[in-house]
Design a protein around this nucleic acid. Structure first.
Lengths: 337, 337
DNA sequence: GTGAAAGCGCTAACAT
DNA sequence: ATGTTAGCGCTTTCAC
């Protein structure tokens, strides 16, 4: 049987209140009894029952983390940032993968709530406005990460994906490219939509022609990157540069280019987004947008926990700065006569 | 205020016992009242308090996952396997990073226990026998993953790292290499020790000479791979092939070779271990040992939960099969006169 | 078929 | 400085 506060009380010859007092470092215990009780606690190897404590305190010191997929290389670092900050502030994290599936997301949120987490960090598909509205209305502590669902008043920690997409597309254009393609991410996500929209903005502003044939809809996976890049290369009119909506798809694209007997960047420039580990490891190094993933996580956890502990604190959106990371997958392009 | 079982009872005009009965699908409720109660539950959006339930049931339907670092590319996939299986069986997972730090590990275990997890999946450094012994003695459900601490009677889901190291070293030898080096992982881990020992066994069995200069102690990080490979290359006698204890270090080694103006595999063959995503994405593709990471996770979760639910079940060790994954970072070697 | 009461392990008034 | 009591939200005897 596990040893409880009662056992300690009996063994030490005091009331459970007194034990509780020394457990929580409350005043009003004589040094003597405190010491005595502490000894018994150590001797019996007592470990307070957090569940019981949680029930009376209405606080579990646990936060929920709901993300699409921990095995997508973007998320482990943000998860690490979250866990580090949470631990620092005395919280644990319970996590759940949803694959951007609306129903999974709903269930995950419900589950977390029934587990009485003190707050949640969410990266949801775009379909789940209602769920978020409910949480907001219930005044439940939530911070969104990576993706901010539009029209939802919950704070978010993100980068500006439209800007980053605009920036990297502009970079391609400044290199002399005029035939640009984009392979979009899962358009059920806000990030994919924003990146697409940043791409189009750049195309428009620089007065380049826009072709539906050169904007393909992927799903952020390596496989879809490979497949869609293959499709792109099979077209009669080939772009000279392509913006892949994330690095994972860019990796897939490398393979497709290679398999077509072409070369990056000589025949086609490729850029990605996120700067996951692989981006700097592959050759040619992938030009991409670096997202401060760890910091994204740290910041989200920090805001969430502040929100949990200060009822009058409503977190603001935090928009972190990404950075254009130029490597070797891009080169200047001269239109030849 | 959150709605409780009491509110439902009052609103439906029944006792809380009855509400509890319909909540848990117990018999002895008339179809009529059941339906009535269910209606109220839906109307009020009631969500049972898992903490209260956990207190009386002494069961939280939560398992703990303690690993060195979720942002090490080896772990996300195993974490995903664990979460998938856990979810399937009705459990959630709460996770914690320890960086192979003994004290962090101790604290994490204690934390999990105070949170009353039903069981834990652990990947610990080798220093923590005592902690594991305590858990074993307390008959607390635990399964080890990736690394089995020696002399501890808790089931483990692993591959045989000595065998895999032996296998990949033999492959190098069969290619004609006779000057082999090994850059070990963090020797505070069982895996690193086993891989080193498999390497030495191959060296011994094939009667190759062994030099301490060619066995360097890394820590599984990319940076240490780069640094130690540089050290290796600076030596007067250079090996022609090196077994890096994991893929991450192998990536670092690629950089070191490149920066020395040498080429993989023409000047030096390199192999890794684990087959993380990057291994197949980089050029030349990294010859390595593929670990069934997702399955490792699935299996561990399955055993753990079975162990939780069947008091007489003691899980056996499961040793999964790795696979030699030959790519282009290795080539035959002819000793030239 | 239904409800009253006890109790899970703890904290927090409220005495004393 | 210490103890008594109530109660957190739920499940489970036990009685009716």
């Amino acid at each position: 049987m596990k040893v409880t506060i009662k056992d300690i009380a009996k063994e030490a010859g005091v009331s459970i209140t007194t034990v509780s007092r020394v457990l929580n470092n409350k005043p009003d215990v004589s040094d003597n009894t405190k010491e005595e009780v502490q000894k018994v606690i150590n001797r019996l190897g007592y470990n307070p029952n957090g569940v019981a404590r949680g029930l009376v305190l209405k606080k579990t010191y646990t936060i929920g983390l709901i993300i699409p997929d921990i095995s997508n290389p973007f998320f482990p670092e943000v998860a690490r940032g979250i866990e580090d900050k949470a631990k620092e502030l005395g919280y644990s994290v319970i996590f759940c993968n949803t694959d951007n599936n609306k129903e999974e997301e709903r269930e995950a949120i419900e589950l977390m709530r029934s587990k009485q987490v003190d707050g949640m960090i969410l990266s949801l598909s775009i379909g789940n406005k209602e769920e978020l509205h409910k949480l907001a209305k219930a005044n439940f502590p939530v911070v969104q990460i990576d993706r901010k669902i539009p029209e939802v008043e919950l704070p978010a920690v993100t980068i500006n994906n439209k800007t980053s997409a605009y920036q990297i597309t502009s970079y391609l254009i400044e290199l002399g490219h005029t035939k640009l393609a984009h392979i979009a991410g899962d358009l059920a996500t806000k990030t994919a939509r924003d990146r697409l929209s940043g791409f189009r903005q750049a195309i428009d502003e620089f007065g380049l022609e826009y072709s539906d044939n050169w904007v393909l809809k992927g799903d952020y996976s390596k496989e879809s990157g490979y497949k869609l890049m293959t499709t792109l290369l099979e077209q009669s009119q080939r772009p000279t540069a392509v913006f892949m909506a994330n690095d994972l798809m860019a990796i897939g694209a490398y393979g497709a280019v290679f398999d077509s007997g072409l070369k990056v960047p000589e025949d086609i420039s490729i850029v990605g987004h996120d700067d996951i580990d692989i981006a700097s490891a592959i050759r040619p190094g992938l030009t991409t947008i670096m997202q401060p993933k760890y910091k994204l996580g740290m910041t989200a956890a920090e805001i969430l926990i502040k929100r949990i502990n200060e009822s009058n604190f409503i977190g603001d959106d935090v928009i972190l700065k990404p950075k254009l990371q130029i490597r070797s997958s891009t080169k200047e392009w001269q239109a030849n006569a």
